[in-house]
Design a protein around this nucleic acid. Structure first.
Lengths: 343, 343
DNA sequence: TTGTAGGCGTTATCAA
DNA sequence: TTGATAACGCCTACAA
């Protein structure tokens, strides 16, 4: 199963390899006629240049890699689409690399950087609690997008684009309080990590405090473990558990929209109504939150703007402007949907 | 920004490159002491082996690539998860490559095959109407999964796993007829391509015919163009258009669940009810179709089983069993949800 | 147990 | 306008 190489093509055409290379890469200094002949032979022999060899040789490729943690999270969909559009417009190649749960994003980046001679990297999602030192090892520019509150965990010298999870979840829980809710459950997960659950929980606590409401451990409901943690199923099962427990809360703050939707379904199946029996609030502002019935009250993250800001920083860094490194915090927007109600 | 290579490490340790190589790759025939020393130096010098060089040298890597067309389609999520699990269990490396709308999947595969020395390829989604010849150029085993009715468009010699879109959409439209609907709209897209729209439309027509109902062009509503075609938004806008047109249909067959959900929302916003005013049916059996209120009547595709079958075929082919090549057609399952009603 | 040298498939540099 | 030839970074006989 030996595959055809540039040498074979050269032989078949009776020319040198460098001539073939010039033909392939549209380099100047080649006779149009020989070029055509070579291209025709290539066409017929189903020759495909080996990218590994190319990467090895080429000093720099115009490529940006986006590393996502949790690619099946639909929150990332519009961000990825925007990245793709933006990067294409810049005539760069876009590579999307997914990182699974137990992989270390920075290690993958380190490998990829060498392998592909990247121009830049975007880390989308994920946690970086103790990878700061490893991040320093990267030699190409990178930006963190939607990584959990980098401004606090990481240094100011690490460029990032995000929303202040703590502040925004404060905002939505405060809203729940403002429409009369005094007994608000939170669907979240243990705060062991420094991930979204932690920060959104902080916001929840602050809002309660501001409104003079006591924080009760019994109002905290833990979501499923594992990679289904933030899914509809997780919200559904957690809500079922809550309903069975005879909780007296009047509102639920779900750590994201998918969980909120699952909760709504469980409430519906119990013969109760959202928002009449329970108000339910989510977080993220997924498209689905607007098509769901009832539409979900949520915090909309300005995903397109965040994606653009991320790449603007990245490309400026690529152009050598290191002064641009910054932590951009976008404001979220409280979207009042049909899933919450004054009490 | 010259990066450190295996030679540098060798020099720093005062050993030869092959010794370093042995240390990195856990090869036998190396003194434990020198190995430890080398690994320590590597650790300190943030050396990362270059994968391009490795791929170039190595004859075969234990890796399977999955090429998806339309990665933000949540229908693929559980399939991808299953692939990942399965491939990891086989101790293979899993690579997910996304293919954008205007890219040719087979070309990407051809490149990747050379670049990474793959063991096998899965094509997930997408259309292959006239890539059959190109497919022949691939020299590693591959299987098509969820590619539009390969049994009909392609030859029997191309292994595939899918559901019979025509038959299944017949099934669900026939169900709508069986509960009394005689005026059924379809939300689809122009049949120019050989994609899902075409086959599901065929099933729709067949079901009408079987039930003695005339097919009306006026009952066909075209979805949005472009990559939002099969989204909730598309279903939403199309339903709005339909409602304004004063259609007299009593049921809607949406080409997939997302479209069905968008349609439900539009009907809701018009002050009408699903299923009382309109029955709405979808296709795919997304998780969301079960959490939506009302839950969506749909055809559930057995995604996990399909994923497993795909890889079983692929691995058998990798093991040299060419006789296994086949077109497996899984049956879909009609899930009657709350979005449809007898009339 | 270790080191040297050649080659993987390209591209880039030089002469021709 | 072309064609040798030397890298690119790594792995692997083979030799020591």
């Amino acid at each position: 199963m030996k595959s055809v190489t540039i040498k074979d093509i050269a032989k078949m055409c009776g020319v040198g390899v460098s001539t073939v290379s010039r033909a392939i890469n549209d380099k100047p200094g080649i006779n149009a006629e020989t070029k055509n002949k070579i291209l025709k032979v290539i066409e017929e022999s189903n020759y495909v240049p080996n990218n590994s060899a190319r990467n090895l040789k080429r000093s720099e490729n115009e490529i940006i890699a986006v590393l996502v943690q949790g690619i099946n999270n639909s929150f990332f969909n519009p961000i990825i689409s925007e990245f793709e559009k933006f990067i294409k417009k810049k005539k760069y190649t876009f590579i999307l690399q997914q990182i699974d749960e137990y992989q270390d994003g920075v290690s993958v980046a380190l490998e990829l950087e060498k392998e592909k001679r990247l121009k830049g990297i975007v880390f989308l999602g994920g946690m970086f609690h103790n990878s700061k030192r490893k991040l320093d090892k990267l030699s190409v520019p990178f930006v963190l997008c939607t990584v959990s509150v980098p401004g606090k965990n990481l240094g100011r010298d690490i460029p990032s684009v995000s929303v202040d999870d703590e502040k925004e979840s404060f905002k939505i829980v405060d809203y729940l309080c403002s429409i009369g809710h005094k007994n608000i459950a939170i669907f979240s997960s243990p705060e062991v990590d420094e991930g979204i659950s932690y920060h959104r929980m902080q916001g929840y606590k602050m809002a309660l405090k501001k409104n003079g409401i006591a924080y009760l451990d019994s109002n905290v409901y833990n979501l499923l473990d594992g990679n289904e943690r933030y899914s509809e199923k997780s919200g559904y099962l957690t809500a079922k558990k809550m309903l069975e427990s005879g909780s007296e809360c009047t509102a639920i703050f779900a750590v994201n929209d998918s969980v909120a939707i699952g909760a709504c379904r469980a409430i519906y199946e119990a013969g109760l109504k959202v928002p009449d029996d329970y108000s339910v609030a989510g977080y993220d502002g997924l498209d689905m939150s607007r098509y769901y019935i009832p539409s979900i009250t949520t915090i909309r993250q300005p995903v397109e703007d965040m994606a653009d800001a991320t790449l603007n920083i990245l490309f400026k860094m690529i152009d050598g402007d290191e002064s641009i490194k910054q932590n951009i915090i976008f404001p979220g927007k409280l979207i009042v949907g049909e899933s919450t109600k004054e009490i």
